[in-house]
Design a protein around this nucleic acid. Structure first.
Lengths: 188, 188
DNA sequence: ACCTGAACACCGTTCAAGT
DNA sequence: ACCTGAACACCGTTCAAGT
């Protein structure tokens, strides 16, 4: 990549971070380009789709989440490990408004830019779930796809501005579907 | 209302029903007007906002749902009554893609055209929930707003095309947060 | 009273022209 | 190689002109 191209790329990503944080995942691409002091066409050549741009924003976080699941400490309590992971999944998926919708759509659309990170996260979550199920601390009649869906629904609740004040309570309730370790489930 | 105005009004509602069923709640208003063989400006004078148009589409169903909660048979089992009502709430809120988002937003925006029906439904649900809680068959640490939120999250899951095949299973799981009557919760 | 076409300021897509 | 302005077909909003 040429030096000026790299510079533009970085400016766009930085600008997108700001604008998407303000306006959500359906923010105006023109707006993002404007704030990056870049032509709209330039933005679109670096990121041909909206999802490609969001992927650049979310990749780091999503990859970290997948790795964390893959290299989970087997000595830790399975319920705690799963709970911690879910908590971070939900926070990650709720950082920008409108991202959860794109994730659930992307996971069965192989063409989507978000597809890879989403399937990888689902696999990671499924492994943690299986360990918890074997230990008898997670509900037995759910699989990785259910887990991904329920965690997404939790993130969806979290990203509704109207429900901001009870976000933690609702997350705790959602958690209680999945985990059953005797202790009262909690998010904080 | 003049005869021709009434005719246009009805044409628009009918057309909106079709288009919104196909494209979701963010369908193009121009498209709806076109299919109704009406000028866009005419549509917008009958329904100044998108929510006003959706309200016309959903009113009947939402009012029926509220009435049903208000006049629930006290002889019936509280858990069954609540379960049946939730089931219908979820189906109603998931008929059109994108409606749940509008509902959760509308419930704390008194200006919204959907505000009245949503608050009335929440009140109805809260009453059924209270009866179930007194009978000890519903979780004690939730209120009407939580119930509305959880039912909305269920409807959200149901309106994700990618999750179509496990919609019933996910609804059952969500139900299990709220109701606890010993019997395995189920939606069908 | 009610309807409508047209002007307006937006949007994302596409591409020929520029460095 | 990379960038960009401009044309295009859309969108919802607004309003003057028509019946």
């Amino acid at each position: 990549m040429r030096a000026d191209a790299k510079r533009n790329y970085d400016r766009v990503v930085a600008s997108a971070g700001d604008v998407v944080a303000e306006q959500g995942a359906d923010a105006s691409m023109r707006d993002i380009a404007r704030r990056a002091d870049v032509g709209l066409a330039t933005l679109l050549r670096h990121f041909p789709t909206r999802e490609a741009l969001l992927e650049a924003l979310l990749r780091r976080r999503f990859d970290a989440l997948a790795e964390r699941a893959e290299s989970a400490d087997p000595a830790q309590l399975p319920a705690e490990t799963l709970k911690d992971w879910l908590r971070e999944f939900v926070v990650g998926a709720a950082t920008y408004r409108g991202v959860v919708e794109l994730m659930t759509a992307a996971i069965d659309e192989p063409g989507s830019a978000l597809h890879a990170s989403c399937t990888r996260m689902r696999a990671g979550g499924a492994a943690l779930l299986a360990r918890a199920q074997e230990a008898g601390v997670a509900r037995a009649d759910i699989d990785g796809t259910d887990l991904f869906a329920l965690a997404s629904a939790t993130a969806w609740l979290r990203s509704q501005p109207a429900l901001d004040s009870r976000a933690d309570h609702l997350s705790t309730l959602m958690m209680s579907i999945i985990i059953d370790d005797g202790a009262p489930a909690t998010v904080d």
